[in-house]
């Protein structure tokens, strides 16, 4: 740790910035080269003019938000109680949340199609809304490792026991405790998990394409099949828009914390 402290933070930051921005810069340079000899925005124009671009982007955006909400609702109470009173469940939970990292999404979606087919008890696959629900479930599953890890980190850094006791003394019931005491304190961690989830959903395409959902990831794959410059433009666009959306989420959280 000591040697790190010797260098100016800005040097370290600069090196990191070069490593991360260079590949993006190269992709951007390529996307601008669609016209021979000059730089132009033609590739971006052709992407914007495609109605499927906006439609698929907003669809994935909505799925991402719903996934974040659903994921947070099921993970926060579980992580809280496991940390507080059910430590023996911890190994089980850890293995469960790591499972999505080694299970290929195609196995998940084939499983869903078998479990929720038209001839089953819960024929979610039969309707468009049902298929979207399956997509949300699939995306939640894929985001679980990140959501749990960040929320657990957050719970670890606050003294959950003291906070709970204090809330109990003040007469709060368990649900209110979670909602009004624990949750605001781990909000930065929840936001971190939300960021990671957002990125997962925006890039997901295997589950979406096998459920015939018009997602952004599928759209990007389709464009890449026979075009060279437009996919690069799409990459830059989706990176920039996602970054902007997350930055806004960040700002809004800061704002509400200050106001609240």
């Amino acid at each position: 740790m000591k040697f790190v402290l010797r260098y100016s933070p800005w040097t370290i930051f600069a090196i990191a910035a070069v490593f991360f921005l260079m590949p993006l810069f190269s992709t951007a340079e390529f996307s601008l080269s669609i016209r021979r000899g000059v730089y132009s925005l033609d590739a971006y124009e052709s992407v914007f003019l495609d109605p499927e671009f906006a439609a698929s982007f907003f669809y994935s955006l909505i799925i991402a938000v719903l996934t974040i909400i659903f994921g947070t609702i099921i993970v926060v109470p579980m992580a809280y109680y496991v940390r507080l009173r059910l430590q023996w469940l911890r190994p089980v939970v850890e293995i469960f949340v790591m499972l999505p990292m080694v299970v290929p999404p195609i196995v998940l979606v084939f499983g869903y199609l078998r479990l929720f087919s038209s001839s089953s008890v819960l024929p979610l696959a039969d309707s468009s809304a049902g298929a979207s629900i399956l997509l949300i479930c699939g995306c939640t599953t894929l985001s679980l490792p990140y959501l749990y890890r960040t929320i657990d980190t957050g719970l670890q850094t606050i003294d959950v026991q003291t906070l709970t006791d204090a809330a109990g003394i003040l007469g709060a019931r368990p649900f209110a405790t979670i909602r009004l005491v624990i949750f605001p304190n781990i909000l930065p961690s929840v936001m971190a998990g939300a960021f990671l989830t957002f990125a997962v959903v925006m890039g997901e395409f295997v589950i979406a394409s096998l459920l015939t959902r018009p997602a952004f990831g599928t759209y990007i794959q389709k464009i890449g099949m026979s075009k060279a410059y437009e996919p690069a433009a799409l990459t830059i666009l989706s990176f920039a828009i996602t970054w902007g959306a997350l930055a806004m989420m960040n700002v809004m959280t800061r704002f509400s914390r200050r106001a609240g």
């Binding site: 199609l113 087919s117 696959a125 039969d126 468009s128 096998l210 015939t212």
Partner: peptide, 27 residues
């Protein structure tokens, strides 16, 4: 026309038929 997996390979097409046995949805 419902379009599934435009980038699927031949083998994946067969696997998708198998996964959807008993399912009459648009997948």
């Amino acid at each position: 026309v419902n379009e599934l997996s435009p980038t699927a390979g031949s083998g994946e097409e067969l696997a998708t038929i198998k996964a959807n046995i008993g399912n009459n949805g648009s997948q």
